[in-house]
Design a protein around this nucleic acid. Sequence first.
DNA 1: CAATCGTCCTGCGGGC
DNA 2: TGCCCGCAGGACGATT
Length: 273
Amino acid sequence: MPELPEVETIKQQLEKNILGKKILKVEVITPKIINQKELPFKQRLEGSLIKGIKRRAKILIWELINGDSLIFHLKLTGRIIIVKKGSQPTKYTHVVFYFDKFKIFFEDLRKFGYIKLLNEKEKDVFFKKLNLGPEILDKNFTLDEFKVLLQKKKKSKIKPLLMDQSFIAGVGNIYAQEACFYAKISPKRQIFHLSNQEIKKLYNGLKEILVMAIKKKGSSVDDYLDLYGKKGDFAPLLKVYGRQGKNCYRCQTEIKFEKINGRGTCFCPKCQH
DNA sequence: CAATCGTCCTGCGGGC
DNA sequence: TGCCCGCAGGACGATT
């Protein structure tokens, strides 16, 4: 499941490969993915130049020279893969972007992901509606701001809150669990009961973990692959995610698995309080 | 305000 | 071997 580090990895790799390049042709294999009429979608894209690649939360944006933006959400199993001109689509390839020297496949096993082509106004409306919280790695996202935001959510449980995109942007099920483990906080704890020290630890943990995960090109749990179709290197460094039944790296206690607000969650019952 | 439920979709694992 | 069943999960809208 691609979260901030995985989408950021793809964003950086796309910058090296498609920035300033022209989309020559677009092929829509699975219309559901683009959520609009196929012909105008193709017509607006074909011949257009890519002038910027951005990421906001887990959303990837291709900015086009004419002001349009192509918005990608990979959800659970989406992928963006660069392939040779002669490569054939797989059963999970839903949209193909043709460039001069290569093609880009949008793939998605579960088809939860989407691509939207929006003009500037529609893009503003789209993001306004999403009401995304701050980017954790943004310089403006300070410990003080984190504290202020937490004050407004006193009754929430910490782990589901970290995954709430309107609270902070980009964290999903993997990194929310890792951050709680790092800070030695139970994922079930309510904000109300967090000390200043714990909040600081959580803040530092989020940043440290996300920076390292980007450096390692993401975590390949489930189906995630980067732009080159390669696995990320962070999965072996995960400290608690997916480790139920195994021993805690800190205190050797057996890692527990529990559903918290409907989401599978791993934690150490002894050293996470 | 916080939590839950249904929805989308497919592969996979359990049970027999 | 193979079939049926239920489950996981990001995010959204509707409901409790």
